[in-house]
Amino acid sequence: MRKTTKSVLAVACALAAFTAAGCGTTSENSGQVKQQNPLAKCKGPGGHYTIGMSQANLAEPYRVRMDDDIRQAAQRVPQFDVQFSDAAKDNSKQISDVENFITKQVDLLMISPNEAAPLTDVVRQAYNKGIPVIVLDRKVDGDAYTTFIGADNTDIGRRAGEYFKTAVLPQGGKIVQIKGLSGSTPAAEREKGFEQGIAGSGIQVVATADGEWERSVAQQKMDAMLKAHPDIQAVYSQNDPMAEGAYLAAQAAGKRDLKITGIDGLPIPSGGIKAVEDGRLQATFVYPTGGAEAVAAAKSLLVDCKPVPKTQTLGTERVTRDNAVEVYDRLNHR
């Protein structure tokens, strides 16, 4: 009888673990995803809401602009108080930042993950505690979030590849690629899309380096690639700061005819659109920050009590010297 009782208890404990009800296991850390009511935090226009925004880093101008866009849009929603954190490219720091927001019991979490896999669990924890989660730009694994807002990085990479095939090197040639941080989803998707875009052409990617999304790192990597491959004709950079780093390295090496393209197209004086207008870059592709859209989604969930789509895909456009002035002015007067 004693053995039977122990067996029953063991089975009950195992079942409880699966339902996150006992045995030292919770659904927040078991890998399961709770069914969330995304409108549970909504108190209507009369409520006051604290939002935590966890940024991957502030070393990239793109991420500074994202925070600025969130800050500016949130100023138009009097019910919102947005608190920002900077992970400084450190996964452990970003995990701690999100845990801090969970402890503070924020009404909504926004996050642009440094890398997908390391941030997945803590984002799931927030989601499983009933906190609506808006994931921006870079993804996490699985679907433990309320909505993802970002451009289609595979499509952007494909468009960049097609541009190389039709306008940059229509006769084919040798190029190098400067990727973003390994482990971040845009880096993998922009590479995959680019390969699709140049398929069937005579374009050969002879080397690829990880520039970590930063100009100084890309400049060092580009210098090394130019020494190893002095006959390259163009550079595909996965963002504009790295493209600028490649430009500086090329100038130092006397390769002033090298054709360089980037991605981001920030409408700021130091951004990619101005770099195209000034002739440093051949082209760039606009990559919206999603900041304003994130605040709009938060308002819908918390103030208006309306659901939002699981995925919100933002548009892009190619910027060359032909349209750089017009695009810059238009994006600054939305």
Rank of each mutant, 00 (worst) to 15 (best):
156 I>T: 04
158 R>H: 10
158 R>Y: 00
159 R>P: 04
161 G>A: 01
162 E>G: 05
165 K>T: 09
166 T>W: 00
168 V>D: 11
168 V>Y: 13
168 V>M: 15
169 L>E: 11
171 Q>W: 01
172 G>K: 06
173 G>N: 10
174 K>R: 08
174 K>L: 05
175 I>G: 07
176 V>T: 12
178 I>A: 08
180 G>Y: 02
182 S>G: 13
182 S>I: 14
183 G>A: 08
183 G>M: 07
184 S>C: 04
188 A>H: 08
189 E>T: 05
189 E>D: 13
195 E>N: 13
196 Q>K: 07
198 I>G: 04
199 A>M: 09
199 A>G: 01
200 G>K: 12
200 G>Q: 06
207 A>P: 05
207 A>G: 06
208 T>S: 14
209 A>T: 01
209 A>Q: 10
210 D>F: 04
210 D>C: 10
211 G>A: 09
212 E>N: 15
212 E>Y: 09
212 E>D: 15
218 A>R: 04
223 D>Y: 06
225 M>R: 01
226 L>Q: 11
226 L>I: 15
227 K>D: 04
227 K>W: 07
229 H>F: 15
230 P>D: 03
230 P>H: 10
231 D>S: 11
234 A>L: 07
234 A>C: 08
234 A>P: 13
235 V>R: 04
236 Y>T: 02
237 S>M: 07
237 S>V: 07
238 Q>S: 02
239 N>G: 08
240 D>M: 01
240 D>Y: 00
240 D>T: 00
243 A>T: 01
246 A>S: 15
246 A>V: 13
247 Y>F: 15
247 Y>I: 06
249 A>E: 01
250 A>K: 09
251 Q>I: 15
254 G>Y: 08
255 K>F: 05
256 R>N: 15
260 I>V: 09
261 T>P: 06
261 T>M: 13
262 G>M: 07
263 I>Y: 01
264 D>P: 00
266 L>I: 00
267 P>M: 07
269 P>W: 01
270 S>T: 14
270 S>V: 05
271 G>Q: 03
273 I>R: 06
277 E>G: 08
278 D>T: 13
278 D>S: 11
283 A>H: 13
284 T>N: 06
287 Y>E: 14
289 T>F: 12
290 G>Q: 02
290 G>L: 00
291 G>N: 09
291 G>Q: 09
291 G>M: 06
292 A>Q: 10
294 A>S: 14
295 V>F: 09
296 A>M: 03
297 A>P: 14
297 A>N: 14
297 A>F: 15
298 A>R: 14
299 K>C: 02
300 S>D: 15
303 V>N: 12
